[in-house]
């Protein structure tokens, strides 16, 4: 009796949890289609005008473009630096591999605001005034742990004798890595890169210290807009963001399989 009851209770809890998790997301999407400028429930009317108003809203598109650039470039730099480092660590080419791996993944343990303040101080100290460069450097640090963890996990399942075999057959070492290793670990690496991209694209606590008037990332701009003039334009932007995330996840699921993606 008790096991059955508690089991049922667990299911109730899971259903409630899902309902709880999805309500805010669904609400944002619903609000983006309303006609009125206030967010009331139940929503009134149906219109796409808030989607059209994104184009005219101050700086929303520009900041989205900036965020995409920063997220893409920083993820790419992390991918190159992190993968090379991870290969050397997994193959035990360097002493202290564990220490290196922990160090490269450690920014994830440090609160975002603390990192942001540290970057701000350091940039001031060396006289780095360019917000774009500072953001980029900071976001490489931010994305590195995601890359390191997934690449290390993928590499630990990779059989390095295949690289040796390729070299014995005449491939140079870099070429062997590119032709044999990269295709094998690509799925795991791609999922790591996706998380890194999302982490960078959504980041608020680090970026807030590094942006200036002309260089604002999307989360900063969104929050600004929310505090200044909250109208459903923000909801429409958010709905598009949700759509993009869902699409990215579906593509990743097709490429890698969501299960494998998240267990790594």
């Amino acid at each position: 009796m008790i096991p059955r009851l508690s089991f049922a209770l667990c299911w109730v809890m899971l259903s409630l949890a899902l309902l709880f998790l999805f309500t805010p997301i669904v609400i944002v999407v619903a609000v983006s289609f309303t006609e009125s400028a206030v967010f009331s429930f139940p929503p009134q009317g149906f219109s796409l005008k808030w989607y059209y108003s994104i184009r005219n809203a101050d700086g929303l598109l520009a900041s989205a473009w900036l965020s995409a650039q920063v997220a893409f470039i920083s993820t790419l730099i992390s991918l190159v630096l992190g993968t090379l480092c991870a290969i050397a660590v997994v193959r035990r080419m360097v002493p202290g591999g564990d220490v290196i791996a922990t160090f490269m993944a450690s920014p994830l343990m440090i609160p975002g605001l603390v990192l942001g303040i540290a970057f701000l101080q350091a940039a001031r100290l060396v006289g780095l005034n360019d917000a774009y460069t500072t953001l980029l450097v900071a976001h490489v640090v931010l994305t590195m742990p995601f890359i390191m963890r997934t690449v290390l996990a993928s590499l630990s399942m990779f059989d390095f004798s295949m690289v040796d075999a390729a070299r014995m057959l005449g491939c140079s070492y870099p070429r062997a890595l590119w032709r044999v290793l990269v295709p094998n670990i690509l799925p795991g690496v791609m999922s790591g890169a996706l998380f890194a991209f999302i982490a960078s694209f959504d980041n608020y606590p680090i970026s807030i210290f590094l942006v200036d008037v002309h260089t604002k990332t999307l989360p900063i701009q969104l929050l600004n807009q929310l505090e200044m003039s909250p109208d459903p334009t923000v909801a429409a932007t958010s709905a598009l963001l949700i759509l993009a995330t869902v699409l990215a996840l579906i593509v990743c699921d097709r490429l890698v399989g969501l299960k494998r993606m998240t267990t790594i």
């Binding site: 899902l18 998790l21 805010p24 997301i25 969104l222 929310l226 958010s238 995330t245 990215a248």
Partner: peptide
Amino acid sequence: IFLPLTVSIIVKTFG
């Protein structure tokens, strides 16, 4: 369960 994690915190908090 996983999907909400990938949705921006600002978007969720707004909701």
